[in-house]
Every structure is written in C-alpha cells, then in structure tokens.
C-alpha cells in the first residue's frame, strides 16, 4: 500500500470521526444531509458484499467493518435518536434518492468489469459513491450558517478523493497492469464535484471568515 492510498483512507476515516463527533458529543446533525448518509450506507453495503468471501488483509477487513458500522449508525442517529433527529434540517434536504440510485444501477448493469452479481454491485457502488455527495452539497448551499465541523467533514471527504486519484497515478506507474477505467472515471467525476466547495472552503479559511456557499 502506498502513502497516498493510506493518507486517503485516513482522511476518509477522519471525515467519519468528525461527523460522529458532531453527532455524539454536540448531539447535532444540523447541516448534514440524511440523503447523502443513506446513500453512503447503500454504497458500503453494495461494495463490501465480498467481506466474508474475499480476504485481502486484516487492515482491509477492519476498515470495511468500520465504514459499514459508522454509516449505518449515522443514519440510525439521524432518524431515531430522540435529540439528534430534532436537529435534522428536513425541509432543506429534499433531494430524491431514486434520481441518483436508478441511473447508477442502470449504468452498472451496462458497464461493469464482469457481468456477475458481485461485480455489478461493485460497479453500482462506485457510481453511486461518485454522486452521493450531491444532496449534501445542495444542503450546504441552502444552509445559512455552516458550522466548522460540517465544513471539515466535507473537506476531509473531498481530500480522500483527491488522495485516491494520486494513489491511482502512483499505482499506474508502479503496477503497469493496474488500469481500472470504471473507478478512475467515476473517481475523477466525484472529485470534480468538490472543486467548487474546495474553492470557497479555502477562501473562507484564508480570509478567516465563516464558510458560506453562494446560492
């Protein structure tokens, strides 16, 4: 495993930790999109179907379990926890799941590395992850006061994507057969979705003002 991949996994993990910290200690999920969180739970469930069939390493298995457990518990907190759920901004989180899920499913049936159930689900998870941040970005745009933890959460998620691209470039040069168009194209699309957010995030940090996205 190269340094970019490890740093990518760590920022991904950090984003989850930041979000759990917000939910667990502040008991608030204000500014967080439940739609995005539900989509991530679907992404991990679809991708990690191989969890008990295909062993890569202890690291891999543990990380998969962490992402599965954290994504489902975040959804649980936002829907069921009696204090946290009251802070959920339902009125502004109006994105419809099927708008993203159905095209991704269709695309996975058409474009996959092998037409087997697990491979189609894997491709589906890659496509869905690429667009799952969409409801979150829409919600941020509608939120007047974006708190620091929410901004950091999205920032770490975006950093994870950038680092994964560096990881693929590194792997391409060190493992010449490592060509996976599905994850590369989807990954680049996913990273571009963050470009706008990154711009405003860095500007707000540089000018020391509160983060706000233009409507």
């Amino acid at each position: 495993m190269n340094v970019f991949r490890l740093a990518g996994d760590m920022t991904h993990l950090l984003s989850v930790v930041v979000l759990l910290l917000k939910i667990h200690t502040i008991k608030s999920c204000a500014g967080i999109s439940l739609k995005t969180q539900e989509l991530y739970a679907v992404v991990f469930a679809a991708r990690y179907l191989d969890l008990f069939v295909h062993f890569v390493s202890l690291y891999n298995t543990v990380m998969k379990l962490v992402f599965l457990a954290s994504s489902f518990s975040i959804v649980w907190y936002m829907k069921r926890h009696k204090i946290v759920r009251r802070t959920y901004d339902k009125d502004h989180d109006t994105f419809r799941h099927y708008v993203l899920v159905l095209p991704c499913l269709l695309l996975a049936l058409l474009i996959n590395e092998k037409f087997t159930f697990r491979e189609v689900m894997w491709a589906f998870s890659i496509y869905l992850e690429a667009v799952a941040i969409f409801p979150q970005l829409v919600l941020l745009q509608r939120t007047r006061n974006i708190d620091n933890l929410t901004g950091q959460y999205v920032f770490f998620l975006g950093a994870y994507r950038v680092l994964y691209i560096l990881n693929w470039i590194y792997r391409y040069f060190t493992e010449p057969h490592f060509v996976h168009w599905i994850s590369w194209v989807a990954g680049i699309v996913q990273t571009l979705l963050y470009a706008d957010f990154f711009y405003y995030y860095i500007m707000s940090w540089k000018n020391n003002v509160k983060l706000e996205l233009p409507a």
Binding site: H54, V56, F67, E113
Partner: peptide
C-alpha cells in the same frame, strides 16, 4: 477465480 486488484481498495 481471482478478484480484480481494484477490489483491494476501500
């Protein structure tokens, strides 16, 4: 039947 190595990522 071996897995594609892209599946060693998370």
């Amino acid at each position: 039947d071996s897995e594609p190595e892209s599946h060693d990522e998370l």
